[in-house]
């Protein structure tokens, strides 16, 4: 991995909260509307607690990362979910050399 900030368009979306039906449908539906491409999904449930990590590509997207992050966070809160969309660099920079 190079240390320069290359123009990556990938972001990590994390969703945490009590499990209920339609969480993935909601997130993926919203992403499709904005033309955000899903590259990878991993999801588990521990003690009814829903955790999803999604890698997405914003290159074809109609919306910027900052706006996407705000929208998902707000709508997530209404559904009792903690939703974050963050640029991938924050994770790679922290843990990898």
């Amino acid at each position: 991995m190079t240390l320069s900030l290359e123009e990556s368009n990938r972001a990590i979306i994390t969703v945490l909260g009590r499990d209920h039906t339609g969480i993935i449908a909601w997130v993926s539906g919203r992403l499709a509307e904005y033309h955000v491409n899903i590259l990878d999904i991993s999801q588990t449930i521990v003690d009814e607690f829903f955790t999803m990590i999604m890698v997405v590509d914003l290159k074809p997207s109609l919306i910027g990362l900052a706006d996407l992050a705000r929208t998902l966070e707000q709508e997530g809160t209404d559904k009792g979910l903690q939703v974050k969309a963050q640029h991938e660099d924050i994770f790679t920079f922290m843990h990898r050399i």
Binding site: I12, D40, S42
Partner: peptide
């Protein structure tokens, strides 16, 4: 390539 480790993402958050 997609090389994210779940633990790393969770730790950062």
């Amino acid at each position: 390539t997609i090389t994210f480790a779940r633990e790393e993402i969770q730790q950062t958050i």
